[in-house]
């Protein structure tokens, strides 16, 4: 692991033990590295193993899964760390943003409690400090009426607002690595645009190293410095956006690009038709 890198995943394999004792490989020997300050995009269709790789690295898979390989973070192999050590990294050193903000929070707790819980798991703060921190996170994310929002339950807030809160929460711990797992795919188009602007802002201002997981080529083009294409648990291509769209080696990648381009063309046609009507 050299100075430039913050995370290096090497020969990661995830097997799942089936009901009848059969094993199947979900992740088949993947290796990649994340450089400091870089935004690495992981592109792949549903079921290609994007989320699974993230969970494996964070130690979130239960005993049904057999994990081999290593994931070096700051010269420590995360695969060899104790569960408690891994827990203390999660949310603190490595923050994660998930796909569906509407279901991310416990429906029975107020936002303030759930935000505070995050910090209570890592820091020793007084009640007052926790409250102030919660307010300041909402202010940073430019959420209006922050005092009211803290008192609300998740179902009372919109998806976009909740996703901004999860982003704010993730950044509040000043993580070394930010992993976003399809952060825009369950949000409407307009909010999607706003959320993507947040990610661009993070990239420019905070310089946090980021892994951005998505199946959407156009979303990934907005943030990723380097793209890694996954298919059926394997990495099939790697390179910048231009490389992926024009010079991809892999048949699957080319197919992905082609179908995406087709959708965009159709979309444009519909738009033009709409204008002529």
């Amino acid at each position: 692991m050299n100075d430039k890198e913050i995370l290096r995943v090497k020969n990661l394999v995830v097997d799942v033990k089936g009901k009848n004792g059969k094993r199947s490989e979900i992740i088949k020997n993947i290796s990649f590295e994340l450089n400091k300050g870089e935004c690495l995009g992981i592109l792949g269709e549903s079921g290609s193993g994007k989320s699974m790789s993230m969970k494996a690295i964070l130690g979130l898979l239960d005993s049904h899964f057999i994990i081999r390989g290593s994931a070096y973070y700051k010269n420590m192999d995360l695969m060899l760390e104790t569960p408690e050590k891994l827990r203390s990294y999660r949310g603190n050193d490595i923050a994660v943003i998930l796909q569906n903000p509407m279901t991310c929070f416990d429906p029975l707790f107020r936002m303030e409690d759930q935000m505070k819980e995050t910090w209570q798991s890592h820091l020793n703060l007084s009640k007052r400090e926790l409250h102030e921190k919660a307010l300041s996170v909402l202010r940073t994310m430019q959420i209006p009426n922050e005092r009211d929002v803290l008192r609300k339950y998740p179902h009372q807030l919109s998806g976009g607002m909740l996703q901004r809160i999860t982003i704010g929460l993730a950044l509040s711990m000043e993580p070394e690595i930010l992993i976003a797992d399809e952060p825009t795919s369950s949000i409407d188009a307009i909010t999607q645009f706003e959320i993507m602007k947040e990610f661009q802002k993070i990239k420019e201002k905070c310089g946090t190293s980021m892994i951005f997981i998505t199946h959407d080529l156009s979303v990934i083009s907005q943030v990723a410095d380097r793209i890694l294409v996954m298919n059926q648990g394997e990495i099939v291509d790697m390179g910048d956006f231009k490389h992926i769209t024009t010079k991809a080696q892999d048949e699957y990648t080319r197919h992905l690009v082609r179908s995406k381009m087709m959708v965009m063309r159709q979309y444009n046609q519909v738009l033009q038709k709409g204008e002529t009507l």
């Binding site: 979130l60 999660r90 923050a95 995050t118």
Partner: peptide
């Protein structure tokens, strides 16, 4: 299996909590 549990784990909440 709910999302809120995954998100709680991902934020590093203690298992007991």
């Amino acid at each position: 299996k709910e999302d809120y549990v995954l998100y709680a784990k991902v934020r590093g909440l203690k298992q007991k909590n």
